[in-house]
Amino acid sequence: MKRILTITIFTLFLALAFASVAFAQQSGPTDDDVNAIAKQLFCPVCENTPLDVCPTQACAQWRALIKEKLAAGWSEQQIKDYFVTQYGARVLSEPPRTGLNWLVYIVPPVVFIIGAVILYRGLVSMRKPAAMTVAESAPATKNESAEDYMKRVEEELKKRN
């Protein structure tokens, strides 16, 4: 697993290096470079549409703006920051990790852990009383391993013949 990760990271690194070489040779940023950033931004006017696929005129202009900024040598982070200051945090695909917004990241895992604890404690407490007696008293049909089941299937089949 670790090795695969290392190899992946290495491959990525190489790919990046090649990409930047290719990039340097071209006259300007390509549409793919623009989309790579636009993908991470959400259209400020349409609801819930990533900027790279939004078909409106406004979004085409925003993509052109990204291209301009890229050509001017801005970094990805700078462009994103620019959009946030212009249109607010809603252009980001996730809430920024500040203040109240932390709640969006914290609540689901906390609820899940609480659920897991409740489930575990429930299972343990359900198991304690008379675990053995139930296993014995329950009828065979309800309480069988896969092999027992196969045996029963075969027996039943024989009966039918």
């Binding site: 959400f42 819930n48 990533p50 607010g88 945090a89 809603r90 252009v91 980001l92 695909s93 996730e94 809430p95 920024p96 203040g99 109240l100 917004n101 969006v104």
Partner: peptide
């Protein structure tokens, strides 16, 4: 978020 801070945010696919 909008109710308490007035800030609009997007919760998108990465989340």
């Amino acid at each position: 978020s909008e109710l308490f801070t007035g800030q609009k945010v997007t919760v998108g696919p990465p989340f």
